[in-house]
Simulated scan of single mutants.
Amino acid sequence: MTEALAPAVTQPAAGSAVPPGDGADPIIINPAPHQMSELAFFLGEYRGLTSDVPDEGPLKVITKTASILDGNWYQMQMVMPTNTETGTVVGWWNFGWDSVALQYVAQWYDNLGSYGTATSPGWVDGHLRFTGEYTRVIIAGGTSGVSEGQVIKSIDDFSFVAPGHLRDDITYLVDGKWEPCGVIDLHKVEAAG
């Protein structure tokens, strides 16, 4: 018995949410909400440093952000090489607009196994604050599947020092008080051409 060959699969246009197919079953695409323009500063590449990390000093940080799913989400890859056996930490932020709760939402996950979700009302007095809860992996368990870490409440407070100079002040809720945890200082990399 001869098996039928699967139809050839074509790739959708870059940034499109339309899956490949013959078009017989059109998918209604949801245009990006206008609120996403408030997050457009994330798009492109930034490079910078963290504040001092215990036993390591400042770490380099590179972010690259692209619009995905017809502009409904911005996906940021954040890369931080460390000076420990942890190696390079790679994380992803997905930023979007929650059109039901009418707030911004950010979801984080990384190669250590950390993850979490935060929300923001938007820009207030020059600050874009995302407040959320995260499972923060401190020492990854690898194949054992057992890591060391903690559940934390955190705020990422984004603000501009100057055009193209972005700062993220990070605080954790410790014993009922918000305490500074570190800063990521980033400069926009202008596209060539």
Rank of each mutant, 00 (worst) to 15 (best):
V146L: 12
R167L: 13
V174H: 03
G164H: 08
T171K: 09
D175Y: 03
L173V: 02
L173H: 02
R129F: 04
V174A: 09
C181Q: 14
H127E: 11
D169M: 05
G126F: 00
I152C: 00
V137C: 10
G145K: 02
D169W: 01
G142Y: 09
L166A: 07
P180H: 14
A140W: 00
G132M: 08
G141W: 00
V151R: 14
K153R: 15
T143R: 06
I170R: 09
V137Y: 06
V174N: 12
P180A: 15
E133F: 04
G164S: 07
A140C: 05
L173Y: 01
T171V: 14
E133Q: 11
L128K: 06
E148S: 15
D156C: 00
V174L: 13
G142A: 08
G145I: 05
G164N: 12
V151Y: 03
I138C: 02
Q150K: 14
D175P: 04
V161C: 04
G149K: 08
S144A: 11
T135N: 10
T135E: 06
F130Q: 01
P163F: 00
S159G: 02
G126T: 10
A162R: 09
Y134C: 00
G126E: 00
I170Q: 13
T135H: 06
T143K: 05
K177E: 15
D168A: 08
S147I: 08
T143M: 10
G176D: 15
G145P: 02
S144P: 03
S144Y: 07
C181G: 13
W178E: 12
G145Y: 05
K177Y: 06
T131H: 08
I152T: 13
D169I: 06
D175V: 03
V174S: 11
S159F: 08
D169N: 13
D168N: 15
F130L: 03
F158V: 10
S159D: 09
E148Q: 15
F158W: 14
V146Q: 11
V151A: 10
F158I: 10
E133H: 05
H127R: 11
V161Y: 06
I155Q: 07
E133M: 08
G126C: 02
V174K: 13
S147G: 09
R136Y: 11
V151L: 11
V146W: 06
Q150F: 05
R136T: 09
S144R: 02
L166Y: 02
K177Q: 15
A140D: 13
L173A: 10
T131N: 11
I152H: 02
R167I: 09
T143P: 04
